[in-house]
Design a protein around this nucleic acid. Sequence first.
DNA 1: TATGAGATCAACT
DNA 2: GTTGATCTCATAC
Length: 189
Amino acid sequence: MAKNFFARSVHDVAPDLIGATFLVGGVGGPIVEVEAYHHTDPAAHSYGGQTARNAVMFGPPGHVYVYRSYGIHWCVNFVCESEGSASAVLIRALMPTEGLAAMRRRRGLDDERLLCAGPGRLCEALAITNAHNGAALDKAPFTLLARTAPVEIAAAPRIGISKAVDLPWRYGWAGSQFLSRPLRPKGKS
DNA sequence: TATGAGATCAACT
DNA sequence: GTTGATCTCATAC
């Protein structure tokens, strides 16, 4: 995947990541769910300026920002358009297709649908830790392949945040069985 | 099925 | 000292 893929607005990059194949050490699959964050967004880590934790978000695009959430989980972001804007895309879920045995072993689960349905789960399945923080996406152990077929993308409000809750900056593969939550913003079945 | 609390740590105030 | 871009398990309908 071209490096300048990430040298664009998060709102262009985020939808384009849906359907792109993300592998760590050959383990992973097509991304089905992401969320966009940039520094003008009160819910973003980069909101309010650079700190020790979010320094990677202020660095060059095409890199990985990893942080610990709730003391337990790791979450991965892809850094975008760094030109003073410090934005990133949170990878929330993907469809497990490569290295299923490794993912099942790491997660201690059989249910394919739950292997990568959520940021913390995804990181555990792909063995992502803060050791990867700041690493470049175009180098080992990472592999990122642009989607080859068009996909139906839906936007919805983000999850698990307390600020800017209504901003529809969560993007997902419509109808996928591997989302952390169904995408329909309103209404039920 | 639905709701609620606990786990556990690094960064921030 | 407080707070999360979360997940899992237990208990209650």
